[in-house]
Write a protein that binds this DNA or RNA. Structure first.
Ligand SMILES: [Mn+2]
Ligand SMILES: [Mn+2]
Ligand SMILES: [Zn+2]
Ligand SMILES: [Zn+2]
Lengths: 139, 139
DNA sequence: ACTAATAATGATTATCATTCTCATTCTAGT
DNA sequence: ACTAGAATGAGAATGATAATCATTATTAGT
């Protein structure tokens, strides 16, 4: 049994609930959204427990987090490999299909002494409407 | 004159000071650190102005931000292309030398209607000491 | 240069996601 | 069943960032 699966071995009730919710949901969720959804499903967890469990799931290699432009974090499963292109002005976000970092990740996993669970890759710039608007304002 | 340089055209006093500080410093800095350094250099800016200017510099394509594990943001120049591998347990962070996303960034810039200024790429996992410690705790 | 309009700044306050505290409840092992 | 340690939850504390608004600097028109 390898390290990862041994770390995953035992999940607490809260960790199981959250892992399960992330699996069902398909999309990534903020901690607050997870808290709300569980409450709605009569599976209420304390907010502190939600945050604690998310950190544990990360350390166990099961969950990942990406920072949203507004300062919140979106959590998902590490099996999900998706990336976005986001407008710095209006926040519009579109998915990016390709991901060219897997071979690098593998290489790092061998050379760096780190056990790598996931990566984040995000692109930032201006969408077409915002580019137009900003050019008009500052000619 | 292209779009980017037209957007960069006029910088406010505060934006110039911060851009200059980021140029000198070489490293990335949090907003709070920028505030402190400018104060130390007798170039005091209000904290609100620091945040506003950083956002403007981003929209002008001059500055980039990456989220630190502790929830703060580190700001640098978009000309800086550096990435890190971070331990989810202890926060240890090591630089990653390679970056395999430039060709994708170029492709996206052409196909997506976005004007892309920068990207973030971060790896997360466990460092060797933490892997050992956690294995010992949960056998 | 003078003035009116507009933009930038800064002191302060408000926000709110996240973390901390600690008392209580659950769990595993004997 | 008993006990030690872990997990949980309610609520308070934290702290970075955003919003407010009065003041100051800059711009544009005359
Ligand atoms: Mn990927
Ligand atoms: Mn890069
Ligand atoms: Zn936009
Ligand atoms: Zn570590």
């Amino acid at each position: 049994m390898n390290t990862a699966s041994s770390l995953k071995s035992r999940l607490t009730r809260a960790q199981k609930q959250i892992h399960c919710l992330l699996e069902q949901s398909g999309e990534t969720l903020t901690a607050q959204a997870i808290y709300q959804r569980l409450k709605d499903q009569q599976q209420m967890l304390g907010l502190a427990t939600v945050y604690r469990s998310l950190r544990s799931l990360q350390i166990k290699g099961l969950a990942q987090a990406r920072a949203l432009p507004n300062g919140e974090w979106a959590y998902g499963l590490t099996s999900d490999d998706s990336h976005y292109l986001t407008c710095l002005n209006c926040g519009t976000s579109v998915p990016v299909e390709d991901c060219p970092v897997h071979s690098l990740e593998e290489k790092l996993g061998q050379s760096s002494h780190f056990q790598i669970f996931y990566h984040t890759l995000e692109f930032f710039g201006l969408c077409a409407p915002c580019t137009g608007r900003l050019e008009a304002e500052s000619p």
